[in-house]
């Protein structure tokens, strides 16, 4: 009867031995390779520090002007540009300038990294069905596993700081760009692709001349999603030593400072809205050839 009411689990001693064995093995791995891995990420770390300093120390009107310029280039909309300027002025006026710049720095680097890694992986998946079957479950895991779970090995390996924070953000934010690149390329009209083949286009000419341009709207939706997900990781990243808007939010939670939490939270939301609007209008402009109708 015992067999049915009590799950026949591994004994307590065996279980703890198993866990210890895994922990021990990973610790050994960390001891052996930790420094090497840290050294590998060193240039990235230096770049992040440099970029963050640049944003913080540059005169604020210049930063706002540059951001407004980027918003204009992306969206070609006065409304969005004016909104961007207003949002950053409010952020500065409410004393959140430095933290916002730090967050902006890590989000920019994370997005750039995700694009640089994610698009090639997406192309690979679109190209080979085998790559797709192998990578899709990995993406599923990356998106569903609670962030705290992968923070443990990341912190064990790299300690606390910007690089582990960046890794944590990227693990979470990478999947959408990979998925949408893959999807975008697979959705390209087969007849158009066949036409390119029939005219003797090489694999590369097809990729750059037909598949990527026609997949761009989807790829851009992926970039947009990636930015949003990176922003949503800001608070968690600040738990492992990333400067930025997440830090005051954490402080507000532990001390029950409602206003502080709210203001910094809203600053994150403001960044999200700006990024979202700019990248979405840019994505739309990329497919303007579709909207012109019969001329």
């Amino acid at each position: 009867m015992d067999f049915l009411t009590e799950f026949p689990s591994l004994g307590r001693r065996d279980l703890s031995a198993l866990r210890q064995a895994i922990d021990g093995a990973f610790r050994n791995f960390t001891r052996a390779y930790g420094e090497g891995i840290e050294a590998f990420f060193d240039p990235l770390l230096r770049f992040m520090i440099w970029f963050e300093r640049l944003l913080i120390h540059a005169p604020w009107p210049v930063v706002i002007a540059v951001l407004a310029g980027l918003a204009w280039l992306g969206s070609r909309s006065w409304k969005i540009t004016a909104g961007t300027v207003a949002a950053f002025l409010a952020i500065g006026w409410l004393g959140m300038w430095e933290n916002t710049m730090s967050t902006l720095a890590i989000i920019s680097v994370a997005t750039f990294l995700c694009i640089a890694i994610g698009i090639p992986i997406g192309i690979l998946m679109a190209r080979y069905n085998r790559a797709q079957t192998l990578i899709t479950p990995v993406l599923d895991v990356m998106q569903t596993i609670p962030s705290f779970v992968y923070l443990i090995p990341v912190v064990m390996l790299l300690g606390i700081g910007k690089v582990p924070g960046l890794l944590a953000v990227c693990i979470y934010a990478l999947p959408p760009i990979v998925r949408l690149t893959n999807l975008g390329i697979r959705l390209v009209d087969t007849e158009v692709l066949e036409a390119a083949t029939a005219f003797g286009a090489s694999t590369r000419e097809k990729l750059w001349g037909v598949q990527i341009p026609l997949a761009l709207p989807n790829i851009f939706a992926g970039v947009n999603q990636t930015i949003m997900m990176a922003l949503s990781m800001v608070v968690i990243a600040s738990m492992i030593g990333v400067q930025g808007l997440g830090v005051p939010v954490l402080r507000a939670i532990s001390n029950q400072y409602l206003a502080l939490g709210l203001m910094n939270g809203l600053a994150i939301v403001a960044l999200a809205i700006i990024f979202d609007r700019v990248s979405q209008t840019y994505g739309k402009r990329l497919q303007s050839y579709k909207d012109q109708g019969h001329g």
């Binding site: 009209d189 007849e191 158009v192 066949e194 036409a195 390119a196 029939a198 005219f199 001349g209 037909v210 341009p213 026609l214 497919q287 050839y289 579709k290």
Partner: peptide, 13 residues
């Protein structure tokens, strides 16, 4: 050889 397609196969962009 060049080819003309039933559904045109033009590059929409």
């Amino acid at each position: 050889m060049s080819m003309v397609f039933q559904k045109f196969g033009l590059l929409p962009h």
